[in-house]
Each structure stands twice: as structure tokens, then as C-alpha cells.
Design a protein around this nucleic acid. Sequence first.
DNA 1: ATGCAAACATACACGAATGTATGTTTGCAT
DNA 2: ATGCAAACATACATTCGTGTATGTTTGCAT
Lengths: 205, 205
Amino acid sequence: MKKTRADALRTRRQILNAALKVFGLKGYAATTLNDIARQAGLTRGAIYWHFENKRKLYEALLKDYYRTIEEKIKTEITSSKTPLIQLKDGIFKLLNFFSDHQDYRTIEEALLGSPQVQQELAGVLDKQKQLFGQIYVQTRALIKAAIDNGEIRKGVDPDIAASAIISYVNGIKLTRLHNPLSLNNMVDQLIDLMFKGMEKGIDPR
Amino acid sequence: MKKTRADALRTRRQILNAALKVFGLKGYAATTLNDIARQAGLTRGAIYWHFENKRKLYEALLKDYYRTIEEKIKTEITSSKTPLIQLKDGIFKLLNFFSDHQDYRTIEEALLGSPQVQQELAGVLDKQKQLFGQIYVQTRALIKAAIDNGEIRKGVDPDIAASAIISYVNGIKLTRLHNPLSLNNMVDQLIDLMFKGMEKGIDPR
DNA sequence: ATGCAAACATACACGAATGTATGTTTGCAT
DNA sequence: ATGCAAACATACATTCGTGTATGTTTGCAT
């Protein structure tokens, strides 16, 4: 039952996809390697050949996730529009990414949700904090640029605004995790509403 | 080793408190009844006498939580201030409640985080949706009242604003769950920033 | 052709957690 | 006083998941 190298990589993918699906349904702690194996149409033997254990398998999933997200963010940011447009676009792309790729729900839940799970996965925590910090820095930089650019009024504190935006986006993600359809056509209006508190050219009366 | 009725109720409390603490540290799936028993200075026998099993114990915790929150909300809302003040006050009280009562972190995580865990606890899901719906309705009503009152400008859609506020508050909760100290002195400014997008009397320029 | 190792499947050993059965103490009604 | 049941602790059986050891097939280098 030896397969070619390409075949092996394909079954590795199968395992990762199956893990993504099952983790999404039952959560990290509740899913057994047997669940994943059955979902993948394999046995636990295959899993243990490709990964050390359940934790390493999960970490591999996270690695994938981080790479994808980081690429997303970088390509979105390097656009040539104005800072405020860049920021808004980035948020939209990010939010749409999660509604499109339902499979990544699992990971998002794990990252948004319980910090306890990540205690077990301490190794990945650094990477996560690093990514979060990176997002924070980029967001604040864009806000500063937008202030200098005159798109956001001078009185806005970049730190507070960045924290607000990140919390807000995570809150929206969370709402959609619990009820994927709830905010479907609202997202752009939700973002606009938040930015109305910061933008310059708008007279709220 | 029979105790008086009052004593029994006290040990029941001990168990609930211990469960709250341990669930908060390790998460629902990862905590064993032995952990809880040890934390309470008892044995699993005591737990099984007071509760059917782990799930029912957790549900009892949720019941407690819901009662507490519902009371909080009701007493905060029936204040006599203006609608917008009521809304802001309610949000502050809610956010402060969670930073004060660290023990309820667990429950909050379970409710905010992974929907998967609640599949196992299907019975409580209804109660949760009901509570969430209730919060949504009350929020929207207060926004409408604030519009009629002239505190929020006419152009704001109450549905969108309510969704925005709830997502925002949940996002802030989430951020503080992951890093309890991060937004410590910002919260009021965060809320203000959001409301600046809605309020009437403010000239953003 | 053939021998080795990759790529799994199967089998087994072990611990951990659950649920239940049973034992033990003691408050309280009679 | 005494018998019953509340309020637990202790002991045991059973299940379940993990990790590992072993078996099996087969692509590929020689």
C-alpha cells in the first residue's frame, strides 16, 4: 500500500481538511483522532504517520491559517488608494474571507474563543500574539496616515481608534460565527457607522 | 456524615464555585469532575449526589449566570435618565460586571466562543438565544427612543445600530478575555467613539 | 528480480474519566 | 432509643482515547 510522493501529500491534505471540518463541528477537545480519520476515509495510522499527535496536527492547521491570513493582509494593504480606503477595504476583505471560506470557522473560533485551549497549544500562542500585534500596528499606522491625510479628524486617538476597530471587527466575526446569516447585508453599513465617528467630512446633523 | 439541610446547600455552592473556577482555567471539555471535586475539597461522590453529571452541573452554572445577568439588565434599564444615557450606562455596567466578577469568565467564554460546545448543551441554547434576542430588542428600543428624543440623529437605522452596538460590546468583551488588562482605561472612550457616529449634537470637524 | 523503505492499516497496551454500586456517618422524626 | 434516609466517601466496572508496536502492500532504486 505504498503510494507515490504526490499521493502521500494528497492524503495529508485530506487529513488536514477532515480535521478542519471535524474540529469545526465538535471543537478541539471533543474531537478524537478517530473522528478525523473516519471523516478522511482513513485510519488513525495515517494520521500518526503524517503528524506526531493531535496537538501537532492542530498546529499544522494554524500554520496554514496564519500563512493564508498574512498573505491576504499584505496583498490588500499594498494597494495604492488613500489610507482610509485601504483600511476599509482591508476590513471588508477580511470579513468576506471568513464568510467565503467556511472551513476556517474552526480556527477562527479557536482563536477568538477560549484562551484555555491555547494554553495547551502554548507554542502557537506567540505566533498568534505576534500576528495580532502586527494587525494592531498596521491599523494604527493607517489611522495616523488618514489623520495626516485629512480623512480622519485630528482629535481621534490612533491607539483608541485601532483598539476600537479591532474589537469591533472581532465582534462582528463572532456574531457571524454564531449566526452566519444574521449580519449578511449589513456589514458595510456597520463599518460605515463606526467610521462616521472618526471621519472628517461628515456632518451628522 | 449527614449534614443539616443548610450545610448541604453550602457544599452545593462550593461545588458550583469550584466548577466555575476550574472551567475557567481549563475549559469545559478539558476539566474532569475530579478536578472540580479536588478544588472544592470534596470527592466526586458529592458532585454526583448534587448533580446528575458534568453536563447538568454546567447547565446549573448557566442558569445562575442567566438569572444574574437578567437581573442586572432589568435593574439598570429601569433608571429614569434619558434613553441614550440609559443605553450607555447599561453597556458600562455590563462591561464592568465582567471585569469585576472574574469567575464568570468561563461562562462568558463558553457563550461568546465556540458554538460547538453548546451543541452538547442543546437545552441551554434556547435560553441563550432568548436572552440575546431580548438584549437586541431592548437595545433597539432604546435607540429608537433616543432618536425620537433627538439624542441620536434621524438617519440612523435602529436595527443596524443595535447590531453594531452588540457586536462591538461582544468584541470588547472578547479582547478583554484574551488580555484582561489591555483595554482597561479605554472602555469609556471606546464606547464614546462608537456613539459619535450616531449622536446628533456633535460636530466632528 | 529483489530488497528496502515509504505509506499506510491493524492490533494491543495503557491510563484516564465516567457512571454506578456500595459503604459509612449522622441528623431527625417517631 | 432507634430506624430511616440524607449526605456524602470509597470502590469497582466499563468505556474510550491515545500512543505504540507490528503487520502489509508496493513504488522505486539497484
